[in-house]
Design a protein around this nucleic acid. Structure first.
Length: 300
DNA sequence: AAGCCCTGCAACCGCCATTCG
DNA sequence: TCGAATGGCGGTTGCAGGGCT
């Protein structure tokens, strides 16, 4: 039983506290939506999985009525299969499972399993990678290398980050220059209110500080800077844990960005993300957001 | 009708982080 | 400060139920 042996078993239930909590959060808790996933939810999961990897708790925070376990099961039993079938039509593409191994998600559980602190560090690393990818994408002449030399998990993400960079590059290339979007400088170090416009994206964890506009949505929302439900995520509402990954990540990003308003009320960030992820045809450019994510998925 | 196979999902496992005394 | 207890997470397993032969 491992560590379970330390947990207290409740008389008559044959369940330890941990098991009870799990059953509550995954099954008994009010507000859990059961049954089939909607197309909307499915898209959310696919897109978020492409962005975040197998971080089901983080993904679940965007789907308040679903538990991480549900999402995980749905991914493993439905979506993985679906994507595999999709990829079979394109034999040159690696399988989805390889994506889970090669991209953000962990390849070896013991070495990369994100417990709280690791989760944050890894997420931070992901964001650094994404930023670099974006930075690389918007400056074609840039020689930014996505490989984090000796960066542990960072090197694991390199291939996917590279892919994203390429996609972004294409995406930006196809984006009409006449659109209201442009780039503006935003020194996150010196101007704490760099997100005064919801459309600006601070890029660069270290030195570079460029802001790019995504079509109507902030990169904060895209990457989950506003990170989900503030009540400690939907999947653990029974516990008020200010130290939850969600909460601490929020704080982390606020501190890192030096921005006051990084984490918005959850519904707000959720809807931003949802809209950004799911809006179809609202993009002025030739390549839609959905196309972008589809392309990302298809690369796996 | 019986046996086999497949699928979906709840629960378990093991690890690490956090809390608490 | 330290160690035990507990929480949280992702991966995996086991089983019930349905479909097929």
């Amino acid at each position: 039983m491992g560590s379970m042996g330390f947990h207290q078993y409740f008389a008559g239930l044959l369940r330890c506290s941990k098991s009870c909590r799990l059953r509550w959060t995954n099954y008994l808790r009010p507000g859990i939506k059961r049954g089939n996933f909607t197309d909307h939810e499915e898209k959310m999961i696919i897109h978020l999985q492409a962005l975040l990897g197998n971080r089901w708790a983080a993904i679940a925070s965007y789907l308040p009525e679903r538990t991480d376990n549900d999402i995980k099961n749905y991914w493993n039993t439905h979506l993985k299969k679906k994507l595999t079938m999709t990829n079979n039509s394109d034999s040159s593409s690696p399988s989805p499972s390889s994506s889970a191994n090669s991209s953000i998600s962990s390849s070896t559980r013991k070495s990369t399993k994100p417990s709280r602190g690791q989760w944050e560090r890894r997420l931070q690393s992901d964001i650094q990678t994404a930023r670099r990818a974006l930075s690389h994408a918007i400056s074609p002449s840039s020689s930014v290398h996505l490989n984090h030399g000796g960066g542990g998990a960072g090197s694991t993400y390199a291939s996917s980050a590279d892919n994203i960079a390429r996609l972004l590059k294409d995406w930006m290339k196809n984006k009409p220059t006449s659109s209201s979007a442009g780039s503006k400088v935003c020194d996150s170090q010196s101007s704490p209110s760099c997100n005064d416009s919801a459309e600006s994206i601070p890029i660069g964890g270290g030195g570079e500080s460029v802001a790019v506009e995504l079509p109507g949505r902030s990169f904060n929302a895209l990457l989950g800077f506003g990170f989900g439900s503030g009540d400690g995520a939907s999947n653990c509402s029974d516990l008020s844990h200010s130290g939850s990954p969600v909460a601490t990540t929020k704080r982390m990003f606020k501190a890192e960005e030096g921005c006051e308003d990084v984490s918005h009320p959850d519904e707000a960030s959720l809807s931003l993300l949802e809209k950004w992820l799911l809006e179809e045809g609202s993009l002025t450019g030739a390549v839609g957001k959905h196309d972008f994510f589809t392309a990302v998925l298809e690369m796996y």
